[in-house]
């Protein structure tokens, strides 16, 4: 509701302010679509800024899914705006002519091109062979161009924005998201620079995973909920776009000593194995709503695929430290036996708490005693207890697994509010 109201504000400011002679329906619709597009795209800066007051309760991955959907909508509005205006009145072709007003025309071209590039580079980043860091830099720069260019264009159109008060209100309104972008890129890294961490261990683990241990350097560390994740920066300075999200595997009971498990999925995660002990690092966060309330006494079922087991390890370790005694189940699915991440730790947890583990392999070795195949409804029926209101389900894994497990759990009667899942395919 708040989001909708904020998005509509630019439109309402201009409509309630200066009221010029009405034009035909197509032109007025085009004008409103343009103003709506400006509101939608300006709010995109707020949505994606990892502001805890906005994304805290919703979960960052959900917010980014929404950001993605709404971004495409904003782009369609940007395209529909000139199209409607021109169809309604061909005289608006003058807006595209630099001789009639070069700044107005250039800002229009800029917004059209930059927003199209923004969408294409996000939807097909991998197809373009664009590295994640470069994509982040380009995404931020294009977003800034689109919103400032869009604001400039709206002010120069001078129809609804004829009055000075309207201009000032619109400028102020769009200025706030622009300032928030500065907060994200400058003030936040500066705050992080005041709370450095030191890499204390870098260990190779099964499944090509690297375990990275960090120690708080001169501060009390970071309070987090088990299952949450942080954005990690390693190296010289926190003022860099080399920032990547990873789940904690350490228990929340040790805020000054954080462990991350990193699988080589991109350029940065491939290079983590070469990081030297003693290297400085910075953490931004914690983020995420994928967490267990260890004190609730509720039973928990964890269903993990591959690296998706990491947040669950943090939850289980925290439960152990806090002496929880409610029964728990962990279904840990992997392709091969050699890829089972933290197997020793997981098996040792089962000895010390009321935890039942089900290892599932797609490609089992001869003599394998665990489950085989993909996690589906029949397997869940076999390995899990009957569903009950006091059981929460946590699911984290690759998208195809999530797409099959979530409906399978729903088919078993699991209510949506007891099904907590996390997806990591952000871009």
């Amino acid at each position: 509701m708040v989001y909708t109201a904020l998005v509509l504000t630019p439109m309402l400011i201009v409509v309630l302010g200066h009221r010029p002679e009405p034009r035909n329906l197509l032109v007025e619709s085009g004008a409103m679509l343009g103003l709506l597009g400006l509101g939608v795209l300006a709010m995109q800066l707020v949505i994606s800024g990892r502001h805890r007051w906005f994304a805290g309760k919703l979960g960052l991955d959900n917010v980014l899914q929404y950001h993605r959907q709404v971004g495409i909508f904003g782009w369609l509005l940007v395209l529909a705006h000139p199209l409607c205006m021109l169809l309604g009145n061909p005289e608006y072709l003058a807006f595209l002519d630099p001789r009639e007003g070069w700044l107005r025309a250039i800002s229009l071209y800029l917004v059209l091109l930059a927003s199209t590039a923004l969408i294409l580079t996000s939807l097909w980043r991998e197809r373009f062979g664009l590295q994640y860091e470069w994509w982040r830099a380009i995404h931020a720069a294009l977003a800034l161009l689109v919103v400032t260019g869009g604001l400039g264009h709206a002010l120069m159109a001078d129809h609804y924005t004829g009055g000075w008060l309207t201009k000032a209100l619109l400028g102020g309104l769009i200025g706030v998201p622009l300032l928030l972008l500065l907060e994200t890129r400058l003030i936040r890294p500066w705050r992080m620079s005041q709370r450095p961490w030191k890499v204390t261990a870098v260990e190779p683990r099964a499944g090509d995973v690297t375990r990275l241990a960090l120690q708080a350097d001169g501060h009390a560390g970071m309070q987090f909920l088990p299952g949450q994740f942080v954005w990690l920066t390693v190296g010289e300075t926190p003022f860099t776009l080399q920032q990547h999200p990873f789940s904690m595997t350490s228990p929340a009971t040790e805020p000054d000593r954080i462990e991350l498990a990193i699988k080589p999925l991109g350029d940065f995660s491939r290079s983590v194995a070469d990081v030297a002990c003693g290297t400085q690092a910075w953490l931004e966060g914690p983020y995420g709503t994928f967490s267990i309330d260890a004190s609730s006494g509720r039973r928990a079922v964890f269903i993990a695929g591959g690296i998706g087991v990491t947040p669950m390890i943090s939850m289980l370790r925290t439960c152990l430290d806090r002496g929880c005694d409610q029964p728990m189940w962990l279904v840990d699915a992997n392709n091969k036996e050699s890829e089972i991440i933290f197997r020793d730790e997981i098996d040792s947890l089962a000895q010390r708490m009321s935890l039942q583990i089900v290892h599932v392999l797609v490609d089992p070795p001869p003599g394998w005693h665990g489950e085989t195949g993909y996690v589906d409804e029949a397997m869940l029926e076999k390995v899990l207890p009957p569903d009950a209101d006091d059981i929460d389900y946590f699911v984290c894994g690759p998208p195809p697994m999530m797409d099959s497990v979530e409906p399978a759990l729903r088919a078993r009667g699991v209510a949506a509010n007891r099904l907590i899942s996390e997806r990591f395919e952000l871009v």
Binding site: L8, P22, E28, M32, L36, Y66, V70
Partner: peptide, 30 residues
Amino acid sequence: MQHIYARRAGIIAAIVLLAVALGVARVLVG
């Protein structure tokens, strides 16, 4: 599950916003 709701929320927001924008345009034309 939540990501499906997040996507749905995006689509619903788009439809509502579009309806408001076109409604306002209609009112402006009179």
